[in-house]
Write a protein that binds this DNA or RNA. Sequence first.
DNA 1: CAGTAAAAATTGGTAGTACCAATTTGAAAT
DNA 2: ATTTCAAATTGGTACTACCAATTTTTACTG
Lengths: 240, 240
Amino acid sequence: MGDKAEEKVTQQKSYTKVIDYIKLQIRAGNLTSGSKLPAERELSQILGISRNSVREAIRTLDIMGVISSQQGAGNYLTGNFENNLVESLSMMFLLNQIDYQQISQLRRALEMQALTLAIDNITEEQIQELTLVVAELEHTTEENNIILDKKLHYTIATASQNILITNILQALSDLIDQFIVDLRREILSSPDSKIILQEAHNGMMLSLIHRDKNMANEAINKHFGIIDEKLRDNADRIRR
Amino acid sequence: MGDKAEEKVTQQKSYTKVIDYIKLQIRAGNLTSGSKLPAERELSQILGISRNSVREAIRTLDIMGVISSQQGAGNYLTGNFENNLVESLSMMFLLNQIDYQQISQLRRALEMQALTLAIDNITEEQIQELTLVVAELEHTTEENNIILDKKLHYTIATASQNILITNILQALSDLIDQFIVDLRREILSSPDSKIILQEAHNGMMLSLIHRDKNMANEAINKHFGIIDEKLRDNADRIRR
DNA sequence: CAGTAAAAATTGGTAGTACCAATTTGAAAT
DNA sequence: ATTTCAAATTGGTACTACCAATTTTTACTG
């Protein structure tokens, strides 16, 4: 009766061996970002599992963004996790586990933190780029509006020097593109909200120039205040 | 020369068909959380691809948390995305794309937002639970300290009513468990930081009771102020 | 008829082989 | 030394077979 419980545990799905192997090699320093993995046929030999199982793991890591598969060339360790986040989030969204309100709440928190961190880390060059974008935003077509808006937020995210936050913000932006296009377009183009957003963007820029975190706070609140307001008005019109 | 560029695009990897199919069925209402997917052999017939390719997609969705595979039973749509986040984050961490500082910055932003949202959404029951945890935290063993600390933060996250933020926070907690155990233990057990954390936890609780967002802000700043301080002291000692 | 136990069918898990498609490598030709 | 082209490498897909866990059906027993 002693080892009855243990028997259950021994089983480990094959593909986990691949993931564990890769993690181990990374820790050991044998693999690093950019490294080429052993060929699939080779891996299946090394780990004593079928190429089938190896591929299931590889494919997963591929979609997760850990590796990049190139037919004929090989599998390479990369580190582009954005796709994965987007895929996950869009599934959560489709399954009605999250809604736009939750996404907006998350985004607000991250934009706030990104801006705060950017105040400490932004370069002179980035400030100039930002100034340019904000200026352009004042007189541009509806089409360019969205592009410039993304650029503005992306620049700030980058200036935060926090890749994790930047990636998540980027994923949220992609998600919004996929599912909430109309809302984004409306918010960015309706005359009244456009003015307020302009003020908010201006405030964000100024907070960076003056290194003023209180100003940053106000600007973000103004920015998402108008978004949330529009959101409530359009609660039913969001496409699923 | 006209259709040269287009030829490149036509190819679509097989497994994407599966993911697209599932998304479509969800949109159409034929699949929902808890639904059983068609059997793998059946799917491969429906989509006109090999079971191999189907499985690669299924395995990916499995690890991503979209579905849950049960040998002999079938594949079921679930929606447990935490594992995926943990796996992604731990890979990013291993590949040195992110460090503890970035994780802490992200966590601070999310804890802040969670607490703010919780102020609006927390139930009386959750407040009582929280009060209990905070009280227990005052006189407990080092071992229980970590468990109670997690429980406190988890309760607040849950009270925020934002599943997305809750999931990410949980993933961050798991990540810290995996890679930064020692630091967590030290922060939670060293006498001086313990007192400050206690004050911070108290402040978080009080901010919820009094629905006071300024108090919440202060408490979070105190909480992560001491963590960041400890972090700087231990910058080199973090295990990789 | 109800309940139970055994057999059969279903379904995911793994393995192996074969061949295609893209890329890389290397040898041969200039 | 460069170019060209054939061969080898490597990921992409398909098919088959069998194992293992689960579910469903069948048969039996009381």
